[in-house]
Amino acid sequence: MLDDRARMEAAKKEKVEQILAEFQLQEEDLKKVMRRMQKEMDRGLRLETHEEASVKMLPTYVRSTPEGSEVGDFLSLDLGGTNFRVMLVKVGEGEEGQWSVKTKHQMYSIPEDAMTGTAEMLFDYISECISDFLDKHQMKHKKLPLGFTFSFPVRHEDIDKGILLNWTKGFKASGAEGNNVVGLLRDAIKRRGDFEMDVVAMVNDTVATMISCYYEDHQCEVGMIVGTGCNACYMEEMQNVELVEGDEGRMCVNTEWGAFGDSGELDEFLLEYDRLVDESSANPGQQLYEKLIGGKYMGELVRLVLLRLVDENLLFHGEASEQLRTRGAFETRFVSQVESDTGDRKQIYNILSTLGLRPSTTDCDIVRRACESVSTRAAHMCSAGLAGVINRMRESRSEDVMRITVGVDGSVYKLHPSFKERFHASVRRLTPSCEITFIESEEGSGRGAALVSAVACKKACMLGQ
């Protein structure tokens, strides 16, 4: 009897593995994704193909990295998701002549009506938060230079001027797309009239992360975010950046690689679950690469896999709870928690219980395998993109072996128990001629924006502006 049951459990697990095998990517698959990513990057950089390229390769006008001589107080704003952060950054000489960066910050959550109302409502709310922060720190009387981390696709015309191309991540505030974001912020500050600010720089969160990590390690020339969304930036040779005049030196390019796949480059790798996630998203047909990796989508992918296993009578005796059938019910943090389970399955059992399920031991094991399959594919897909960037940098610099540091931020990278190990191992397999160091950014977005502002202020002083 026991043997029969054991055989049935083994057969069930084997069927589960057959279904989950769809998520496995072979090294040849990853090399294919990497080569296609490089081709799209090239198209994004070139003037004649930029418009139709899915990977936009947006110039950021960040050319210099901090040298350690900029000092002063800077205000930093960070808008990239449902939370908005205001930070005071003091850049100065530390002990023994070292450079020191001290920060104080406060988080504000953005109400739904500000995210989806008008641009005026959104930026009025942001300036209200700045006003509140300055009151708390008794700094209303000071006109501070301000660095703005704005983590949406922007076409820069200068370091302090950028046109919002399109909202992502659930934002829909009308009247912002096609307009200068810094102008919208300046107008809102003017409307309030109770404080003055000098907006000197606007950067993407990947750029802010790279600059913040450069402060720790001067070989950091790539910034990457794996959180709600997924994106990367890197220092490109100016001669390859056709959208900006000049051939000397390097400029940081914001790849906006989340949109890779929007022209069909990933079609052969998309599964039924991916198509369902895409169809029910706020932007169907867009940001397809990001939807395979980002935390906004990972939990939902797992939920759809679990429903398939229920329908195949391989999980929960073929019956799903009402909660499990509800879109968004299986949160991405559950994926991390399930994979963090120590082996007694308590954590998995508790999560499934909150979803109205009474799982068996085998159910718990199957749910864990589903989570591992989805998150491992995410790590491997992400590795193909980064390997594409790094191999490109090595080739354009004609280096036999390139040493490089990548600064990384984002909740999936930082909080998932195995993502970074799987990701690092896969990147290294795909970049055999590179020695890569990964560092995690601390308060990256805010500190990085302030350091970019410090560079901009120093330049302005040198130019006598």
Rank of each mutant, 00 (worst) to 15 (best):
residue 436 I to G: 02
residue 340 S to D: 05
residue 206 T to W: 03
residue 119 A to S: 07
residue 431 T to K: 06
residue 109 S to F: 06
residue 178 G to D: 12
residue 264 G to M: 06
residue 238 M to N: 00
residue 240 N to R: 02
residue 98 Q to H: 08
residue 309 L to Y: 03
residue 277 V to R: 06
residue 175 G to Q: 04
residue 102 K to V: 10
residue 430 L to W: 09
residue 227 G to Y: 00
residue 372 E to C: 05
residue 64 S to D: 13
residue 8 M to K: 13
residue 205 D to G: 05
residue 238 M to K: 00
residue 364 C to A: 03
residue 259 A to C: 07
residue 222 V to A: 03
residue 208 A to T: 14
residue 302 V to C: 05
residue 216 E to K: 15
residue 239 Q to C: 13
residue 202 M to E: 06
residue 147 G to V: 01
residue 447 R to L: 14
residue 420 K to Y: 14
residue 311 D to I: 06
residue 242 E to L: 01
residue 448 G to S: 10
residue 8 M to F: 12
residue 5 R to W: 07
residue 458 K to W: 10
residue 344 D to I: 08
residue 288 L to N: 15
residue 236 E to K: 00
residue 395 E to C: 12
residue 206 T to L: 03
residue 166 N to S: 11
residue 313 N to V: 09
residue 414 K to E: 09
residue 101 V to H: 07
residue 330 F to Y: 06
residue 89 V to G: 01
residue 175 G to D: 08
residue 404 I to F: 02
residue 308 R to L: 05
residue 186 R to W: 03
residue 94 G to D: 11
residue 104 K to V: 08
residue 309 L to P: 00
residue 56 K to I: 02
residue 47 L to C: 06
residue 111 P to S: 13
residue 41 M to S: 08
residue 101 V to W: 08
residue 115 M to S: 10
residue 91 V to D: 04
residue 69 S to F: 05
residue 388 G to V: 06
residue 433 S to C: 04
residue 132 D to N: 05
residue 286 Q to T: 15
residue 26 Q to A: 06
residue 448 G to C: 05
residue 212 S to F: 11
residue 20 L to R: 10
residue 76 S to Y: 06
residue 330 F to L: 09
residue 145 P to L: 01
residue 132 D to Q: 14
residue 173 A to H: 05
residue 339 E to N: 04
residue 238 M to F: 08
residue 121 M to E: 13
residue 247 D to F: 02
residue 427 V to A: 06
residue 198 D to N: 01
residue 282 A to S: 15
residue 114 A to D: 09
residue 361 T to P: 10
residue 264 G to F: 06
residue 96 E to G: 09
residue 345 R to F: 14
residue 139 M to F: 14
residue 425 A to F: 10
residue 307 L to N: 13
residue 386 L to K: 01
residue 124 D to Q: 10
residue 115 M to D: 07
residue 252 C to H: 00
residue 401 V to C: 07
residue 353 S to P: 01
residue 304 L to V: 07
residue 84 F to S: 01
residue 337 Q to N: 04
residue 49 T to A: 05
residue 94 G to M: 08
residue 58 L to F: 09
residue 146 L to V: 14
residue 358 R to M: 14
residue 134 L to V: 07
residue 144 L to D: 08
residue 232 A to D: 00
residue 321 S to C: 11
residue 444 G to E: 10
residue 14 E to V: 10
residue 293 I to L: 14
residue 370 A to M: 02
residue 391 N to M: 08
residue 189 I to D: 06
residue 82 T to C: 10
residue 164 L to A: 15
residue 241 V to K: 00
residue 422 R to D: 13
residue 96 E to M: 14
residue 173 A to L: 05
residue 125 Y to S: 07
residue 345 R to D: 13
residue 149 T to P: 06
residue 151 S to H: 12
residue 147 G to E: 10
residue 336 S to A: 15
residue 93 E to A: 09
residue 202 M to L: 04
residue 262 D to L: 13
residue 180 N to A: 05
residue 421 E to Q: 12
residue 386 L to N: 04
residue 233 C to S: 05
residue 91 V to A: 09
residue 290 E to H: 14
residue 416 H to R: 11
residue 372 E to W: 02
residue 74 F to Q: 01
residue 145 P to H: 00
residue 255 T to F: 14
residue 21 A to C: 06
residue 191 R to E: 06
residue 171 F to H: 15
residue 84 F to C: 07
residue 318 G to N: 09
residue 383 S to G: 14
residue 391 N to C: 10
residue 344 D to T: 02
residue 72 G to L: 00
residue 177 E to G: 07
residue 367 V to Q: 00
residue 155 R to C: 15
residue 348 I to D: 04
residue 220 C to F: 01
residue 94 G to W: 08
residue 286 Q to K: 13
residue 250 R to C: 11
residue 464 G to I: 12
residue 141 H to W: 14
residue 127 S to G: 12
residue 357 L to E: 06
residue 404 I to E: 07
residue 112 E to H: 12
residue 332 T to G: 12
residue 167 W to Q: 14
residue 343 G to D: 04
residue 208 A to L: 01
residue 440 E to S: 13
residue 255 T to N: 07
residue 295 G to C: 14
residue 458 K to A: 15
residue 199 V to D: 04
residue 382 C to W: 06
residue 399 E to W: 12
residue 189 I to F: 06
residue 447 R to N: 10
residue 289 Y to V: 15
residue 388 G to S: 13
residue 46 R to M: 13
residue 397 R to F: 10
residue 388 G to W: 02
residue 308 R to C: 01
residue 269 F to R: 03
residue 125 Y to W: 12
residue 229 G to R: 12
residue 5 R to G: 08
residue 403 R to C: 13
residue 273 Y to I: 14
residue 306 L to V: 03
residue 203 V to K: 00
residue 436 I to Y: 10
residue 324 L to A: 07
residue 286 Q to C: 13
residue 324 L to E: 00
residue 417 P to C: 07
residue 408 V to H: 06
residue 274 D to W: 02
residue 325 R to S: 11
residue 44 G to C: 07
residue 321 S to A: 10
residue 291 K to A: 15
residue 377 R to G: 00
residue 205 D to C: 06
residue 209 T to L: 06
residue 8 M to Q: 09
residue 297 Y to G: 14
residue 417 P to W: 11
residue 455 V to A: 11
residue 444 G to L: 14
residue 406 V to C: 08
residue 60 T to S: 12
residue 8 M to R: 13
residue 286 Q to E: 13
residue 310 V to K: 14
residue 450 A to C: 13
residue 69 S to E: 14
residue 156 H to N: 14
residue 456 A to L: 13
residue 215 Y to C: 00
residue 152 F to W: 11
residue 41 M to E: 03
residue 349 Y to T: 06
residue 93 E to G: 07
residue 212 S to Q: 01
residue 43 R to C: 15
residue 204 N to T: 06
residue 381 M to P: 00
residue 112 E to V: 07
residue 41 M to F: 10
residue 320 A to R: 15
residue 346 K to H: 15
residue 464 G to D: 14
residue 195 F to T: 09
residue 313 N to R: 09
residue 367 V to N: 00
residue 240 N to L: 08
residue 41 M to V: 07
residue 85 R to T: 11
residue 273 Y to V: 07
residue 218 H to W: 08
residue 295 G to R: 10
residue 205 D to E: 06
residue 188 A to K: 02
residue 341 D to A: 05
residue 338 V to F: 01
residue 345 R to E: 06
residue 123 F to M: 05
residue 396 S to F: 09
residue 450 A to G: 14
residue 249 G to V: 01
residue 117 G to A: 14
residue 162 G to S: 10
residue 312 E to G: 11
residue 167 W to V: 11
residue 141 H to Q: 12
residue 133 F to R: 00
residue 225 I to W: 02
residue 98 Q to W: 08
residue 216 E to M: 02
residue 180 N to V: 08
residue 281 S to W: 10
residue 261 G to R: 00
residue 401 V to N: 03
residue 326 T to M: 09
residue 379 A to H: 08
residue 223 G to T: 03
residue 129 C to F: 05
residue 443 E to F: 07
residue 391 N to K: 13
residue 284 P to E: 14
residue 389 V to K: 02
residue 125 Y to H: 14
residue 221 E to C: 08
residue 149 T to Q: 08
residue 256 E to G: 09
residue 75 L to Y: 00
residue 75 L to S: 01
residue 175 G to F: 07
residue 295 G to E: 15
residue 141 H to T: 03
residue 32 K to I: 05
residue 110 I to S: 07
residue 292 L to I: 15
residue 61 Y to M: 13
residue 73 D to Q: 04
residue 365 D to K: 01
residue 129 C to L: 05
residue 295 G to D: 13
residue 322 E to Q: 09
residue 389 V to A: 06
residue 345 R to W: 03
residue 172 K to C: 06
residue 259 A to V: 09
residue 457 C to K: 15
residue 393 M to P: 04
residue 89 V to C: 07
residue 453 S to K: 14
residue 125 Y to C: 09
residue 273 Y to C: 05
residue 231 N to C: 07
